[in-house]
Computed example of a mutant assay.
Amino acid sequence: MEAAASFFENRSTSWSYDSLKNFKKLSPYVQQHLRKVYMTVGGALLVSAVGVYVHMLLGIGGLLTGLGFIGASVWLASIPSSAAEEGKRLKLLGAAAFCQGASLGTLIEAVLNFDPSIVVTALLGSFVVFACFSGAALLARRREFLFLGGLLTSAVSTMMMLQFSSMLFGGASLMYMIEIYGGLLLFVGYVLFDTQIIIEKADRGDRDYVKHSLDLFVDFAGIFVRILLILTRNARGRERKEERRRARSTRY
């Protein structure tokens, strides 16, 4: 939990008040950098899909792949961005994406066995949400959403405190609802925030498109998981209602 809090806090402190007042249009360099970032995110998503497939074949997803994702991400962040290290950092991004996909494989496999259409709907919905809010950050005035950094960090801390409280005092059902719906709003906020942070860094000469791609990949994965859980929960609720309706009709 502390590692997760540190991860989110590090993402929300790389800006200053002066950047809030800078609303310049995107330069050609920044546009080129963003294209590179989004292409890399797309590649990471494909590798993640391979991770899901390999898990379904071999059952490799679990604690080790979760730790593998954290290890690869931390290792990537610790290596300075340079042309000499670009290949190594891309491999680490691919390893992180593969481990994330394998880790999600158990959930995705269970949903596929229940209703394959839910996975397709969740994936399409995630692309739509990600594209809309990332596009909103690109089209908005520069640095307009940087104020979200503090709010998002506070929201993460609050959710962790609530989770700890639920472990001590109960209320797991309520906490689950907060995690999936509140978590969805949280990651949507991070898409807005991270997109504008990437613009700010690129405008200042930061060419670390690999790290920027990892940030957006994490945001997309967080959105996908929560949309998948919400759709599955709603489908199971409808199924239970239908079963109760059939049971009542057979009685009379």
Rank of each mutant, 00 (worst) to 15 (best):
T65Q: 13
Y29I: 15
L63R: 15
V52A: 09
A172Q: 04
F114H: 14
A5V: 07
G105E: 09
V128M: 05
F145A: 00
G68R: 07
I108R: 13
V128Y: 03
K211M: 12
V111C: 07
V47S: 00
G182Y: 05
I70G: 14
W75F: 13
L229F: 08
A202D: 02
S19P: 07
R236S: 08
V41R: 07
V37P: 00
V210F: 08
E242I: 08
L152P: 00
L139H: 08
G150D: 02
E9N: 02
G59Q: 01
L34N: 04
I180T: 11
R143I: 04
L90S: 10
S249T: 14
L214V: 01
T106S: 15
Y29D: 15
K88E: 10
V111I: 13
K211Q: 07
F169R: 04
S166E: 02
L185S: 07
F7P: 00
P80Y: 05
L216F: 00
A221H: 12
K88G: 12
T65C: 06
M160D: 10
G170A: 00
A102W: 11
L46T: 03
R245G: 13
G43R: 06
L229W: 08
V129S: 02
L67K: 05
M175H: 10
R207W: 11
G105I: 14
Y17G: 04
A235P: 01
K241D: 12
E144Q: 10
L231I: 03
F169Y: 11
R89M: 05
V210N: 05
L93I: 10
L139R: 08
W75A: 15
V225A: 15
Y17P: 00
M56V: 12
K24V: 02
C99V: 03
D203E: 15
L76S: 07
F217Q: 02
G170C: 01
G51Q: 07
I198F: 04
A49H: 06
M177E: 08
